[in-house]
Structure formats: C-alpha cells, structure tokens
Nucleic acid binder design. Structure first.
Length: 269
DNA sequence: ATGGTTGCGTAGCAA
C-alpha cells in the first residue's frame, strides 16, 4: 500500500497538478493539506472519477485537510480535541483522521496541517501564533498517545512545519529562529516521537539535502533553497512494514506548482 | 535589495 502526503496550497488552484499526479503516482491513500475551501466547494466529482473515496475537513480561505483513498474510509473524525477535552475542537481545520479499510487489514491514517507558528515573538513574549503551534503539538501528542494504545498500523501524515535537523535545510543559518526550527519546536516534535513513533524519512534514508518545500520567492526552487517539513510519522506496526519513502520533487517543476511536493510511503501491507 | 511570490478574495493576511 502506498500512502502519500501533499500540501497542495489550494485544491482549486491545484486541480490540474493534483489530478496529473494522482493519475501517474496512483497512491492508494493521499492525505492533502491546505485545500483552502469549504467542504461544499471541494471538487469531489473529479477526484472520485479517478477511483478515490474522499473525506474532507474544510474551511473558508485557509487551512483545510482531506483524505483520499482507493479503499473504503471509515470512522472519520474531524478536528483535534483541545487539551482537557474529549471532543471539543477549535475552528481551524487542520486534522482529519480515519480508518482505511483495506483488503490486507485496517490502517489508521491522519492528514495533519500543523500550524506554521510565525511570527515567534510579540515583543518579549511568544506571539499567540507560536503559542498556538506549541499547544497544537501537545494536542497532537495527546491524541497520538491514545491511538498508540490500539497497537495498530498508524500513519500520521502531513505538513508538520517542523525542520527536524540542520541537514534538512539548505540554509540552516537562514532558518535560525524560525518557528519551524526553534529548540521549543524540536523539543515538542521529539516528545511526539518519544511516545514510540518513527519519522519515516529518518528511518528509510536520512540523507542531507532532501527537501519537500521550496518557497515561491527569491528563486528558492532554482537555487534548491529548500526545507524538509512534510513527514510520515509511524507507529511500530507501520514502521515495521515500510519499504521505501519517495519524494516526488519533479512535481515542483510542473505548471502552477504548489510550494510543497508529495511524499509517498510504500508499505508491504 | 528590510526585498521577493502565491492564494484567497478583492484589502490585507497567511505562508
């Protein structure tokens, strides 16, 4: 089974790129982020015509996540509970989770759009946006801890807005102090992994200079001034089954590209 | 170069 993650930066602006990629890559499951539309305006028909079931957690103008799957999608939940609550969520559509009911057994998958978090400071205090990012990472860890209790294949796929290490950016000095590359962000990401999760790229490859995002500005793509912020985070039951992780960077050369490219995990289940 | 680009929505925010 191939499970992918892609921040498309608006599904409506990206339909040509998305359908082209779905037709050629043919992932079994694709987790999309930043669809930037409400559910009612999502292009269900065009994507279902390619053989996918679709579940969406949309929002007007910003954010928005979706799960596409060639297999049935069950037990869908939208939004990440706020701390201290079972089911109360906030109004930013950044999380959708479901069971993929495949013929080789169930896999739980989440499509995650972790807050960017910039700017970091507001005067001498952390800006509310960075506080929101750190708090959201705590909420994700709380949810992950609960899901790990089920001891099943689990793939938390998405745009984490976290550069795990200096080797994951072309310009470490330039990213110093950014919300994606701060010690507090690294600590929160490590705390998530310490629950017993594996970041797939680190397990499968780990090489420096493999990026998933290049800014639209200042010729970042042409200069390979990229960062690796899109990740597949796996339970042991999924990490034991992954055989490869691919970054479809050729998509960045397409017409009207997203600033992110798809990542694809290949699992032998 | 305190810049640069894209998307949403039609001004200014978010990334």
């Amino acid at each position: 089974m191939e499970i992918a993650s892609w921040n498309v930066n608006s599904i409506k602006a990206r339909m040509h790129a998305v359908t082209d990629w779905l037709k050629s890559a043919k992932p079994d499951v694709a987790c999309l982020q930043e669809i930037k539309t409400v559910d009612d305006a999502f292009p269900f028909m065009e994507i279902e015509a390619l053989g996918y079931n679709v579940e969406v957690h949309g929002q007007k103008s910003y954010n928005g996540v979706a799960i596409l799957s060639k297999y049935p999608i069950e037990d869908v939940s939208r939004g990440l509970p706020i701390l201290g609550s079972e089911d109360e969520v906030d109004d930013q559509a950044r999380y959708i989770e479901a069971i993929i009911s495949s013929d080789v057994g169930p896999v739980r998958v989440a499509s995650i759009y972790l807050p960017n978090g910039n700017p970091v400071y507001d005067g001498s205090e952390f800006h509310y946006k960075y506080q929101y990012k750190l708090r959201w990472m705590e909420r994700l860890a709380t949810r992950a801890e609960r899901l790990l209790g089920f001891e099943e294949p689990l793939v938390l796929a998405g745009d984490y807005n976290v550069i795990p290490d200096a080797k994951d950016t072309h310009d470490p000095a330039g990213w110093t102090g950014d919300a994606a590359f701060r010690p507090e962000t690294h600590a929160a990401f490590q705390k998530l992994l310490n629950l017993g999760l594996t970041e797939a790229f680190e397990q499968m490859d780990g090489r420096a200079g493999q990026y998933t995002f290049w800014d639209y500005q200042a010729g970042a793509w042409q200069n390979n001034n990229g960062i690796r912020i899109d990740h597949l985070v796996l339970s042991a039951q999924a990490a034991d089954k992954i055989t490869a992780l691919r970054i479809d960077k050729m998509v960045r050369d397409g017409k009207k590209p997203s600033d992110h490219v798809p990542i694809v995990g290949i699992f032998n289940f």
